[in-house]
Write a protein that binds this DNA or RNA. Structure first.
Lengths: 96, 96
DNA sequence: TTCAAATGTCGGCGTTCGCTGACAATATAG
DNA sequence: CTATATTGTCAGCGAACGCCGACATTTGAA
């Protein structure tokens, strides 16, 4: 599974949590976070802190790997190329 | 590369940034973050927000993948006998 | 449908974020 | 070595965090 946005991350965690038969309250307790944090995170909270995220992944036995995209894992007809800089610039401008 | 902690994440980004010949200021600007954020993040800041982290990975052309640790990412050398139908069924079920 | 569990939402609170600007401390040239 | 670029640190600021408690809504099983 490829992760590009906070929402994708949240959905992956949600699926896995359910697959393991855990409730939000149970998982939150395991990772030492509030239940409300999990609620927001699974729904794509973009400003969640990575420490908790990594703990969640660990608690769900999910492995996180990073690799340069010029060494493709799977020959992709894959993700739509996005100009991140343009996006960010737009976002910044929007905030002013 | 496997990621378990915020520090590992920071170090991976740092290595990649240097490999691409970017300065902290340059990368921070691309991401739309302050330079001080990058400084702290590369040094393992555990409460950095994932939104910025994902933007950093994207800006460095790094792919992030998640998978259960009981489904190894790369088949060890030598063909592993696999029941393709079982795998497909499991995947299908998983998506529901 | 009924009812309990699970999930989502709200307000308030103290803490920490990430930002800017300025300065100190290292690396890297020349 | 000196000079420059890069990286690291500090203080101050507004904004958002993640927490808790309580309540509303949705889900799932009897």
């Amino acid at each position: 599974m490829q992760i590009r946005t906070p929402l994708e991350l949240g959905l992956v965690i949600r699926d896995r949590r359910r697959k393991l038969g855990l409730t939000q309250a149970e998982l939150a307790r395991k990772i030492g976070a509030g239940r409300q944090w999990l609620v927001a995170f699974e729904r794509g909270k973009s400003r969640a802190e990575i420490g908790l995220v990594l703990r969640a992944l660990s608690a769900l036995d999910l492995l996180l790997t990073i690799h340069p995209d010029d060494l493709p894992l799977e020959p992709s007809d894959g993700p739509i190329p996005v100009d991140i800089h343009a996006v960010v610039d737009a976002a910044k401008k929007a905030r002013e």
